[in-house]
């Protein structure tokens, strides 16, 4: 038909390589480390830095599926309640005589079911928005947790269970090891697999994805179920750290998770952002919080800082997207004119 040749090799460009939001986050981490070690003499030692990860990594597991959910232009605000429910179920079953291993299995199952239910409602009733569905289930799941345990706590787990939250492999916290392993998996899943590509496709243009044979419903269902499952993993770590649980645990975790994802450069309009960004953002927020904790900053200031940081980062990402578009426009014009 034609003899035109089209280039299919891309030259590596340092400029493009460094012009990524992720570098900005790396810079932020470095700056936070610098500030932290200058304001507190207790920050810059191995024990602090590794123990800090134990305090903020539990909820970070939910970041993986939340990235995919937000890339797909959805949101899940029921994850905190899912954590509470699966934790409560695990503890009550164990206290009722179930072996701990099975109780952990039940925890994962409950979490996955909660997520699946969200996804199912969304897929079955397409008119429903994720905000509505997960808002309702957020109240419902926590309500069920309260029904099970009322104002009691449940716990007294076998000693080995505390390994999840407190154990070390060598001198590295177990939670950090697992998180890094899962993070690598999550990055590969989203960036290097067909599944990941399809997640982006759904977020960029759901109609076109459907018309291109992408199983939109199935992928949504999987990702929401994954969110529930990860919430259950968070529940295991959290429960292990507390040694017992109550229906009111993990309150507002969804907010923290969404803040991390948003800071990670995932555009709220869908289709944009990388898993790596969100993972870096976990450490940005985690170490920021920890560092401020080391100088004993009052909790209310922390609230304000996190709130402002969230808005500032989303503003910057928004402006960045707009800026990039404008750049593209002007470039096009030149092309056309020449």
């Amino acid at each position: 038909m034609s003899t035109r040749t089209i280039n299919n090799t891309q030259e590596f460009s340092w400029k493009r390589f460094f012009l990524q939001w992720e570098w900005m986050l790396v810079a932020l981490i470095i700056i936070i480390f610098l500030i932290n070690s200058s304001i507190s003499p207790y920050f810059l030692n191995y024990l602090s830095i590794s123990d800090a990860t134990m305090t903020f990594l539990d909820k970070a597991f939910i970041v993986f599926p939340m990235v995919m959910i937000m890339i797909m232009r959805e949101i899940d605000i029921s994850v905190g309640s899912t954590v509470a429910l699966s934790s409560v179920v695990m503890a009550s079953l164990y206290n009722a005589g179930l072996p701990m291993v099975l109780a952990i299995g039940a925890c994962l199952l409950v979490g996955a079911l909660c997520g699946f239910f969200n996804g199912f409602l969304l897929v079955k009733y397409r008119q429903l928005s994720a905000v509505i569905v997960t808002l309702s289930t957020m109240i419902l799941y926590r309500g069920i947790a309260y029904m099970i345990l009322e104002d009691q706590s449940a716990g007294e787990f076998p000693t080995w269970f505390s390994f999840f939250g407190w154990g070390y492999i060598g001198s590295v916290p177990f939670i950090l090891v697992l998180f890094v392993v899962m993070a690598i998996g999550a990055v590969l899943l989203l960036q290097k697999t067909v599944f990941g590509r399809r997640v982006y496709a759904i977020g960029s243009n759901p109609t076109a994805s459907r018309f291109s044979g992408v199983k939109v419903d199935k992928i949504k269902l999987i990702v929401f179920t994954l969110a529930g499952l990860m919430a259950a993993i968070t529940a295991i770590f959290l429960t292990s750290r507390m040694g017992s649980t109550r229906p009111n645990v993990a309150n507002m975790y969804e907010l923290d998770v969404i803040a991390m994802v948003a800071l990670g450069g995932i555009s709220t309009a869908g289709g944009k952002g990388k898993m790596l960004g969100a993972i870096l953002a976990v450490f940005v927020i985690g170490y920021l919080q920890y560092g401020l904790g080391l100088i004993n900053i009052p909790a209310q200031m922390l609230l304000i800082i996190i709130g402002v940081l969230l808005i500032a980062s989303v503003t910057v990402t928004n402006l960045r997207v707009k800026g990039k578009l404008q750049k593209k426009k002007s470039k096009k014009k030149v092309k056309k004119a020449s």
Partner: peptide, 12 residues
């Protein structure tokens, strides 16, 4: 997102 952020800030 905006109102979540402000919720934190106002509460603080």
């Amino acid at each position: 997102i905006a109102s979540l952020g402000l919720m934190n800030a106002f509460r603080g």
